[in-house]
């Protein structure tokens, strides 16, 4: 067994202490012949420190497209020639989406808006929408609305939003290559306020933006430092019209190695399969990831693209004997 996996077995599996940046990099550099044992170890770490439950979430776009920011991977930026048009979801449809999500057994429903940060119109939609969902649907409400002011943080807490997603997207050193309209530090500042407010912090990113393996390791270490409750891992699904529209997708083995490495960096976090798994890893990838460190999934469709039908993921969890985390366990 490679030295780094030996070390990870003692330090991460037995001790619950995540690998540092150099350790993550060593895992990311392991040759393919060690991939199976790497995934196996990451799975053991997940089972030991998180348990067999899988957290299931649905997401919906409350405000799509027309974003003033220029994140180079994003089809919702209004600055690129992307075919995605601006559209708002009405409250009855939002509540219906929450109901459909709850019907899959999901405990999390994340409301997402393509904005730099919320304006008064969006905050009003949130107030009405979250209140309506909480009155009618048994599900935890999370939100992802970009960068926040302290007042907005306080208001989301008051509404009962229990978790806030704000992705750092990529490591600090690579971020300026991907986004020019705001900084990594501005994102970090929102995360700091969210953490201090008592809301759970959900922060991850996208692999395959053109970052090096070293930068992937840097990113894992920076996330570990943040200690987020949840880390959603996306794989780039190159979108027509965006600056990264012709970027190759991450090779399946590299994607799986990254999943295992991120788990070994963060033994206790909820590590969620988010967008791009279908494109990068195909149907079998979902199984491999769930047996390699992943312990949460987004079911159903994404914001502007479609996912596997929820029942296929749920059937897989059943087959793997991984129970869906119950609402009572999250309260």
């Amino acid at each position: 067994m490679p030295e780094i996996l030996d070390r990870a077995r003692t330090q991460v599996l037995d001790g619950g202490v995540g690998l540092d940046e150099a350790g993550v990099l060593a895992v990311l550099r392991l040759p393919d012949e060690h991939l199976t044992e790497t995934l196996q170890l990451a799975h053991e770490v997940r089972m030991r420190w998180c348990g067999p439950e899988v957290e299931v979430e649905g997401i919906v776009s409350l405000k799509t497209g027309g974003c003033p920011e220029d994140c180079h991977f994003c089809s919702q930026s209004g600055l690129f020639a992307s075919p995605v048009r601006s559209v708002w979801l009405d409250i009855p449809s939002l509540v219906e989406a929450a109901k459909q999500t709850a019907a899959t057994g999901a405990t999390e429903f994340c409301i997402v808006a393509a904005v730099r940060g919320p304006d008064e119109r969006l905050m009003k939609q949130m107030r009405e929408g979250v209140a309506a969902i909480r009155a009618e649907v048994d599900i935890q409400v999370a939100a992802s609305l970009g960068m926040l002011t302290q007042d907005q943080v306080d208001e989301l807490v008051e509404m009962g939003v229990h978790r806030y997603n704000h992705n750092l997207e990529t490591c600090r050193s690579y971020f300026p290559n991907v986004v020019s309209t705001h900084s990594w530090e501005e994102r970090w500042e929102t995360l700091r306020m969210v953490r201090a407010s008592g809301m759970e912090v959900c922060c991850g990113g996208i692999l395959g933006l053109g970052e090096t393996v070293e930068q992937r390791a840097e990113f894992a270490a920076q996330l570990a430092e943040l200690e987020p409750h949840e880390v959603p891992l996306n794989f780039l699904n190159p979108r027509p019209g965006t600056p990264l529209g012709d970027q190759p997708v991450v090779a399946p083995r590299d994607a799986l190695r990254a999943i295992a490495a991120f788990r070994l960096a963060m033994p206790r976090t909820i590590l969620r399969y988010a967008g791009g798994r279908e494109i990068t890893l195909g149907d079998l990838g979902t199984r491999d990831g769930l047996l390699g460190g992943i312990n949460a999934v987004i079911v159903g469709n994404y914001l502007t693209t479609l996912g596997r039908p929820a029942n296929e993921d749920l059937a897989l969890l059943d087959e793997l004997k991984m129970p869906v985390k119950a609402l009572s366990a999250t309260l």
Partner: peptide
């Protein structure tokens, strides 16, 4: 298109307003 909704109207090629939902679009 297996994993994306349509973006252009097939009759007139106008860009459509598309809303993706957890279980449809």
């Amino acid at each position: 298109r297996a994993l994306e909704p349509p973006r252009y109207c097939p009759q007139c090629r106008r860009r459509m307003k598309v809303q993706v939902l957890p279980s449809g679009w």
